[in-house]
Design a protein around this nucleic acid. Sequence first.
DNA 1: GCGCGACGAGACACTGTGTCTCGTACGCTA
DNA 2: TAGCGTACGAGACACAGTGTCTCGTCGCGC
Lengths: 192, 192
Amino acid sequence: MPRLWTATVEGHRREVRDAVLDAAAALVGRHGLRGVTMSRVAEEAGIGRATLYRYFPDLESVLHAWHERQVASHLAELASLRAGAGSAGERLRAVLAGYARLSRASRGHRESELAVRLHGGQDVVRATGHVHGMVAELVEAGARSGELRGDVPAGELATYCLHALAAAGDLPSETAVHRLVDVTLAGLRPGT
Amino acid sequence: MPRLWTATVEGHRREVRDAVLDAAAALVGRHGLRGVTMSRVAEEAGIGRATLYRYFPDLESVLHAWHERQVASHLAELASLRAGAGSAGERLRAVLAGYARLSRASRGHRESELAVRLHGGQDVVRATGHVHGMVAELVEAGARSGELRGDVPAGELATYCLHALAAAGDLPSETAVHRLVDVTLAGLRPGT
DNA sequence: GCGCGACGAGACACTGTGTCTCGTACGCTA
DNA sequence: TAGCGTACGAGACACAGTGTCTCGTCGCGC
């Protein structure tokens, strides 16, 4: 049984795959979601339409794969922030600030984000669930040390954090985002 | 020039229009967004396809109109809460609690919500902008009276509130939603 | 009752989908 | 370097849904 997937061929396939994802993202940004079709993606990526179908079964899969590529890098970045030094509260602030920055940076892709969320569903939930778990752990630790409130389940507080910080996408300046992180954290402090 | 739009004919048109919107909402809920087509909407509403095109130019318009109908009733409800008695802070709590409850109640329609947001764009922004203004006013008043923090622009705080309360859609119980409102409001209180 | 206009049904051209076949070009192996 | 195998591009195909149009029918309003 001859080895078909030699390094070179596989490398080629990765290049094509990346070109497809880039093409899809570019088309969404340029023509909006309605303007993206399998035909145009193939054309933009410089491959035949039939070839595109050998890589992805439908448009949803293309957008989904693109989204996964985005999320992977974001997750890695947040994980490194979580692993930093300091108390649970300090590391939580770092992670939340990072999440807010990422939310704001990718607000241009919000349209595609929504599109993926609409149909992709499952894996998106898994990815955001990963971030949610990360935040919930830090909140739990902060509550145990008394830095944060303990009268509300950590999971609920994590949900609150992620939604509140999504507001970063609507804010005009980075200083406003900084204030948003402060306000959000204020909601986590122990009551009077 | 004969009057064509007599009361009866106009009434009929409203009935048909409502039936179309109901049909669209039902189809989205039943088959998901991908399963909704102009053909199916017409069939579900019990009218001819060509007739449907006399009411709405495309599917986007149908979903958009449905969304507007929803938002109108929500806005009215929130406005009545704002007009209630009590201090700015108390009325703010009432409005935010109402918003959270509405967010949670319509989480089943979140898919359609996203769909409308994807393409409708303009009017959705206007509607949410209306709510945003309502909240911002109350926050501003609360800041003047010293009930709420004044170190962050009221508009930013309103943005924070609306996003944070959207988390209500992900919470399992009404008591959890109540806690969410408390946490969100905690973020608005004056700093130590 | 009669007329105007809305209606349902169906035909039509068009776009995009997903599958298939064919001949070609290129990388891998001998 | 020669061949073999595989992925590729191009194009044909049936199928879905769209948006427009026509035609015959039905019913409200004068």
